[in-house]
Amino acid sequence: MGSEHPFDRLRELCARLRSPEGCPWDREQTLESLRAYIVEEAYEVVDAITAGKPEALAEELGDLLFQVIFVAQLAEERGWFDVVKVCELIHAKMVARHPHVFGDVRVASAQEVVQNWEKIKKNEKKRGALGGVPESLPALLKTLRITEKAAALGFDWEKPEDVLTKVREEVEELAQVVGRSKDERDEAKLREELGDVLFSIANVARHLRVDPEAALQAANRKFAQRFAAMEALASARGWSLDGCTMEQLEALWQQAKAQTDP
């Protein structure tokens, strides 16, 4: 490994791991087997950002970068492309999609940048406006990306209050289905109406410039923290949660909220 640049050294390391003298596990990997690792490493980067820990973020970005270079190594072995080609492609794409930086286009806001970006992408790929949204994205994030693309082309509510009105309409439609007796309830319709509610709520988040995935993750953490405090309170009294009455559970929950809320 004579190269001095860290990127080149990492590239050489991936090639070594895949060589006959390298690692048996790494040699067994395929593009298909690496999919889960790529997703996992991306989420660990997000976790490090959320935690606000620079050292952890640097480490997790390294893990993700390794996956990129390792996948490019497998592609190179198949005669498809190498990581240099990957760098060249993304460089050219970013220059083309920033004509307000590298060309003579003028923009007045970040929103105009997004609108131009979507138009350029549409012309590049010759596909529908919603093309390019990965099928495997988490549902809330996928809703955010879909509605961003639609909004960039002018298909959007004017203000958050309008979307909240839509949420109320969707909740009422869901309530009508839920209100039917179980024998009369259409489960497919129930799923459809629930999906409409969730979609509308994610759209509200976009209008409020809130990442719905991050907001829900924060709500998950808050609930888990309160529930752990609730368990501790019950244990201190010699109670088991599954043996408590609803009144006792509610009292424990309120006490846990008082302890954990700032």
Rank of each mutant, 00 (worst) to 15 (best):
V114C: 04
N116A: 11
N116W: 10
N116E: 14
N116I: 13
W117L: 14
K119L: 09
K119S: 10
I120P: 00
I120H: 03
I120F: 07
K121M: 08
N123K: 13
N123R: 14
E124C: 05
E124D: 15
E124T: 10
K125F: 07
K125R: 15
K126Q: 11
G128D: 15
G128P: 03
L130K: 03
G132R: 02
G132C: 04
V133N: 01
V133E: 02
P134Q: 05
S136K: 05
L137W: 03
L137H: 02
P138R: 05
P138Q: 08
P138H: 13
A139T: 11
A139E: 09
L140H: 02
L141V: 07
K142I: 07
K142N: 06
T143P: 01
R145F: 05
I146V: 14
I146K: 10
T147D: 12
K149E: 01
K149G: 00
K149V: 01
A150L: 15
A150F: 04
A152I: 01
L153Y: 14
L153E: 10
L153S: 06
G154H: 02
G154P: 01
D156T: 12
D156M: 04
W157K: 08
E158Q: 07
E158K: 11
E158W: 07
P160N: 14
P160V: 10
P160W: 08
D162H: 13
D162T: 04
L164N: 08
T165M: 09
K166I: 10
K166T: 12
V167S: 06
V167P: 01
E169C: 06
E170W: 06
V171L: 15
V171E: 11
E172F: 12
E173N: 15
L174A: 11
L174H: 10
A175H: 06
Q176C: 08
V178Y: 07
G179A: 01
R180A: 11
K182R: 14
D183W: 09
D183S: 15
E184W: 13
E184K: 13
E184L: 13
R185P: 07
R185G: 13
D186G: 10
D186R: 12
A188K: 15
A188N: 13
K189S: 12
L190R: 09
R191E: 14
E192G: 12
L194V: 08
L194T: 12
L194G: 13
L194F: 11
G195N: 12
G195V: 05
V197M: 03
L198Q: 13
F199G: 02
I201T: 06
I201A: 07
A202E: 00
A202P: 01
N203D: 10
V204A: 08
V204W: 03
A205C: 15
A205K: 06
R206A: 01
L208F: 12
R209H: 14
R209F: 04
R209C: 04
V210L: 12
D211P: 03
E213M: 12
A214I: 10
A214F: 06
A215Y: 06
A218Y: 01
N220F: 11
R221G: 07
R221E: 14
K222Q: 09
K222F: 10
F223K: 14
F223S: 05
Q225K: 15
Q225Y: 02
F227S: 00
A228S: 14
A229H: 06
A229Y: 00
A229G: 13
M230H: 02
E231A: 01
L233I: 01
L233R: 02
A234F: 00
S235F: 02
S235P: 00
A236S: 15
R237Y: 03
S240D: 00
S240V: 00
G243C: 01
